[in-house]
Simulated scan of single mutants.
Amino acid sequence: MITEALTFFTPTTEEGEGAYFFDTGISCGFPSPAEDFKQQRISLDRELIKNKEATFFARVSGQSMIDAGLDDNDLLVIDRSIAPEHNKIAVCFIDGEFTVKRLQIENGTVWLKPENANYDPIQITSENNFLIWGIVTNVIKRV
């Protein structure tokens, strides 16, 4: 049984120039002089979305992927145009529920591997109603 849920969103394009972007790198040590800052605009849509028609967002609900850096309430960027491959993180539809797991493809067998030792891998068999819905390309976190 899958114990987590995903809430899906479609991207919308806002007209405008995007947020300000300082193309200097942000130091975690000593601050750099203020005159070094070069100010320009950045669009997160252009940075995070490669194929708008095939891209969706989903909010994570659950803890099964915390060791991969996907925490409860994180926002995933999912591209349905990317071919699934071994070791990619995928949003899958299995037996009527969505889940996000790492794909493990070994000798023709597909496993959905959680990234949390408290959860067991799921072996996909012919008994399952299974679809790889899309590949996770980015995660957006709140701090």
Rank of each mutant, 00 (worst) to 15 (best):
K141V: 01
N138H: 15
G62A: 09
P121I: 05
L131W: 14
R142L: 05
R80P: 04
T10A: 11
D74R: 00
A83I: 01
P11H: 11
A54K: 12
I122D: 01
I132A: 05
T137L: 06
I132H: 04
I78A: 00
A54M: 11
T7Q: 14
D79M: 04
Y20V: 08
W133I: 01
V136N: 06
V100Y: 02
T7A: 14
F93H: 08
A34I: 14
F37S: 09
I140E: 06
T3C: 11
K52W: 11
F21T: 07
G69H: 04
K52F: 14
M65N: 12
G29C: 06
S43R: 14
M1T: 15
T24K: 10
L76K: 04
I135L: 12
Q123M: 14
T125C: 10
E35K: 07
R41F: 12
H86W: 04
I89E: 05
E14L: 14
I89K: 07
G29R: 09
T7K: 14
N129H: 07
T99I: 11
M1A: 15
F9Y: 15
Q104S: 06
H86T: 00
S61A: 03
V100E: 02
E14C: 11
D36T: 06
P121R: 08
F9W: 14
T55Y: 02
M65I: 13
S61D: 08
P114E: 00
V91S: 03
W111Y: 14
Y119M: 07
Q39C: 03
N73V: 01
E4S: 15
L44Y: 13
N73A: 12
F22E: 12
N73S: 11
F56K: 09
G134R: 05
E53M: 12
I82M: 02
V143E: 07
G69K: 07
Y20K: 05
N138T: 02
D45L: 13
A90R: 01
V100A: 05
C92E: 05
V143H: 03
K50E: 05
T125D: 07
A54P: 08
I42G: 07
F9G: 02
S43V: 09
V139D: 00
N73R: 12
K38R: 01
N107R: 10
P33W: 06
W133C: 02
V136M: 08
V110C: 04
F21N: 15
Q63T: 06
F37N: 12
I124A: 08
I49W: 03
F130T: 04
A90F: 04
P31Y: 10
S32H: 13
Q39M: 12
F98T: 02
I135C: 10
S27K: 09
A90K: 03
Q40S: 08
E14G: 03
L131N: 14
E17V: 02
A83L: 02
Q104K: 11
N87D: 13
E85C: 01
D36G: 01
S32P: 00
S64H: 07
Q39N: 00
P31M: 08
V139G: 01
D36R: 04
D45K: 09
P11M: 10
N116M: 10
S81H: 11
I82K: 02
R102G: 02
F56Y: 15
F37Y: 15
S126D: 14
K50V: 02
Q104E: 05
I49T: 05
A19L: 13
G18M: 09
E85K: 05
S64M: 10
I140G: 01
E115K: 10
F30D: 10
Q63Y: 10
P84K: 00
A68G: 13
I124Y: 10
T125R: 11
N51R: 11
